[in-house]
């Protein structure tokens, strides 16, 4: 399997995950060079972590902000965010 075949297979996997059923319009057949860039799942760990997302089941106690701070410290990274907080369940 060529490099771009592997890349396109990953993109098809993304489409399946995101519920995208669109067909492709193919303008040309091209190859990608192994000399630069990475297949996303093969990035070296430090890059993989910085270009990553975690589907986290957050425990109910700490705030999203606190959890992000923990994760930054645990992973040794400077920048991380979260996908939004929940409204408080009770007044």
């Amino acid at each position: 399997m060529s490099l771009s075949q592997r890349g396109l297979e990953f993109i098809d996997k993304l489409d399946k995950y995101g519920g995208v059923t669109r067909q492709w319009i193919i303008k040309s057949e091209e190859e990608t060079s192994p000399d630069y860039g990475y297949l996303p799942w093969k990035r070296p760990m430090n890059e993989y972590i910085n270009m990553g997302v975690i589907n986290l089941d957050k425990p109910p106690g700490p705030t999203s902000h606190e959890v992000v701070a923990w994760i930054k410290r645990l992973l040794g990274i400077n920048r991380a965010g979260h996908g939004g907080t929940l409204e408080p369940a009770t007044y």
Partner: peptide
């Protein structure tokens, strides 16, 4: 940890 590309999967 998933590749960040999952953020645009939809």
């Amino acid at each position: 940890i998933l590749p960040a590309e999952y953020l645009v999967s939809h």
